[in-house]
Amino acid sequence: MAEIIIKQVAKSFGTFQALHSIDMTIRDREFMVLLGASGCGKTTLLRIIAGLETPSQGEVWIGGRRVDHLPPRERGIAMVFQNYAVFPHLTVFENIAFGLRMKKLPQQEIDKRVNRTAELMHIEQLLKRYSGQLSGGQRQRVAVARALAMEPDVILMDEPLSNLDALLRLEMRAELKGVLAESKSTAIYVTHDQVEAMSLADRISVMNGGKIVQNASPVEIYRDPAARFVGSFIGNPPMNFIKANRQDIGRWRVAGLDLYGPSHGASSLEFAIRPEDLTIGEGGFIATARVVEPLGAHTLVTCEVDGKPFRAVLDSDLKVAPGDVLTLIPKPDRIRWFDPETLLAV
């Protein structure tokens, strides 16, 4: 069992508070992604779990053991770094075997684990090469294989695909998800790339300003953001937001439309809708197209609604040109509402 429990973990660097009382439980064999912009605290939290940083307060538990006082080698973890960290003077075989030799495992066991993980990562034909002879994608596979060969309870990954080109990232994402499912390790993966997060995670913890804003499945994060930040950060393009003024209990005026919404006592809320949850028809928002971007199967249209930018993802068969006036209808079950003061969903 490799359940990870984070209890009230905080971290300060001088006067800068990098993490604020983080509480989190990562289930055994779960794939958890820490997602957020640069500086949000996700890598600091990962390094605290790894033992590379000491928390200013709080506890870290792995597999029922408190480990925040233990050195990294005693925590049952392996780590994959953004810069690969493979040894240029060693062959691929020796790179993968490095940690196993440090554990003084028998040569037969080392051979078995190296060959198995190399096969999993499709690099078995590279075992005799030196890392200087490998491409970036191949070096990243070696780094992952080296971590997996340790058969760790927990594998930690800090933006491991960020240095790869788009096509390689797509290929590695698919392989990584399958390989980690087979490995039976609990995985924590740090990224700022929402596509990686959505495609890989069992659950996503969205971080902002050293806090966890929402912790949920990818579908829930996408469909039901708990805070305005999540709606604006997740999705490409992100959610549209328009001020809504209360007309009556449960009725709101949004850019000239009367819509049913929450029975909230505030005089105003923020209406939110994803660009792909809009259709063209009658009785919707009056929008003037400003920029039209063909994207293959879809067309992204940046419009002006109520004097502000408003994006719609439309079928590419619809012919739209800058200056066209559109009527955009929001799908009622996809509308979300946020409190402008707390910035939380209502």
Rank of each mutant, 00 (worst) to 15 (best):
T327V: 10
K184C: 07
A181E: 14
F271K: 08
D224T: 14
T191H: 12
A174T: 15
K7V: 01
R203A: 02
D333F: 03
E341P: 00
Q107E: 15
V142F: 11
L90T: 04
R101V: 03
A244S: 07
A216E: 15
I242L: 15
G76W: 13
R73C: 06
A174W: 00
Q8D: 14
A201N: 08
A85D: 03
S21F: 00
S217F: 06
L269Q: 13
H20R: 14
L100I: 05
R173W: 11
G136V: 08
H122A: 15
F233G: 06
R169H: 04
K128C: 05
A187P: 02
E276A: 07
L259H: 03
Y130V: 03
E341A: 14
E159I: 05
A197N: 12
S21W: 00
E74Q: 15
G76V: 10
E270T: 05
V92F: 06
H298Y: 13
M157E: 04
P106I: 08
Y130E: 03
G39N: 08
P55C: 00
Q247P: 00
M121I: 13
K112C: 10
D193M: 13
E175A: 14
G296F: 13
A145C: 06
V9Q: 00
A187K: 04
E74G: 01
F87R: 02
S131D: 12
L257D: 05
F233P: 08
M102W: 01
K128A: 13
T54S: 14
F98D: 04
R139Y: 07
A289N: 07
H89K: 08
L134W: 10
K211T: 00
H20F: 01
V114M: 09
P322C: 11
S199I: 10
E282P: 01
S56P: 02
L52V: 03
P160Q: 07
D248Q: 15
G261M: 11
R169F: 09
G284E: 07
R27D: 14
I335G: 04
T288N: 04
V142K: 13
M157G: 04
G284L: 09
F271A: 12
L200F: 12
L168I: 09
P160V: 06
V301Y: 07
L126S: 11
A287E: 12
K128P: 00
V254K: 07
M32H: 03
R228G: 01
D111F: 03
P275I: 05
F310S: 09
T54V: 14
R66L: 10
